[in-house]
């Protein structure tokens, strides 16, 4: 059965960003066809998974405060069913990496990720988690968590506003909805442990070689 385009309430498919990456993933999965019955079951499981993404409370800096705002009354991610933030990595479905990851923190993050039970997802929130952001030429900052763990969704911003975090979560829902759990490889198992080196704009200012 073909995997269809994932639907999200209130936002039409066309208005989402980065649909081509998603379509590439769908095409990849559709190469290995499965039968209809399993496909239906898959839909059900994906529906369950995508609406019950419990995140690990993991915040290192500013973005964490915005994540708290998302949980508070005004934005209320309970509407999506995400409100059960678990403090134990065993029970969490996704790690929302909100904040800078430093050299000292990197092993901790890696270990937390390894401690989580499959299926697990990673969302990189904010510039620091995506690329090191403001501190990317610091001696003690990891330039993007995708160097140590695979990232599913990137939410840019410094920090991203709560709506942007919700939008990112919906993007993740879309990604979860196209996965295959039965009869066919899980998109997660297809994933390489450490993804390709991301493109990074290399133009560090040094302070000396600038025009006066």
């Amino acid at each position: 059965m073909e995997i269809k385009r994932p639907k999200i309430k209130s936002i039409p498919y066309e208005e989402f960003k980065d649909n081509d990456t998603l379509e590439a993933m769908i095409a990849q999965i559709n190469k290995e066809r499965t039968n209809v019955l399993l496909g239906k079951l898959d839909d059900l499981i994906n529906w369950g998974r995508s609406n019950s993404l419990w995140s690990l409370t993991f915040a290192t800096s500013c973005c964490g405060i915005e994540f708290m705002s998302v949980g508070a009354a005004r934005y209320d991610f309970a509407r999506f069913g995400f409100e059960v933030t678990r403090n134990s990595p065993r029970q969490a479905d996704l790690i929302m990496c909100a904040g800078t990851i430093t050299h000292k923190m990197a092993p901790v993050l890696k270990r937390l990720y390894d401690q989580m039970a499959e299926p697990k997802y990673v969302v990189a929130v904010g510039g620091c988690a995506i690329s090191g952001g403001p501190f990317k030429d610091s001696y003690h900052v990891l330039n993007g968590i995708d160097k140590i763990i695979p990232v599913d969704v990137y939410i840019p911003g410094c920090p991203p506003r709560p709506e942007a975090i919700l939008y990112g979560m919906m993007q993740l829902q879309r990604k979860v909805k196209i996965e295959k759990f039965l009869g066919g490889k899980n998109a997660h198992q297809n994933r390489k442990e450490i993804p390709d080196e991301p493109i990074i704009v290399t133009n560090y200012p040094t302070g000396e070689d600038k025009k006066e």
């Binding site: 019950s52 999506f80 069913g81 479905d93 039970a117």
Partner: peptide
């Protein structure tokens, strides 16, 4: 705040989706 609203009408199906997810979650 509002609580679950988006899964099913008034979020009625929210708990079912949690159940489906929990059942297939890896046991470590």
């Amino acid at each position: 705040r509002l609580g679950p609203t988006r899964v099913g009408k008034w979020g009625l199906l929210q708990v079912f989706s949690d159940v489906f997810k929990m059942i297939i979650k890896e046991i470590i």
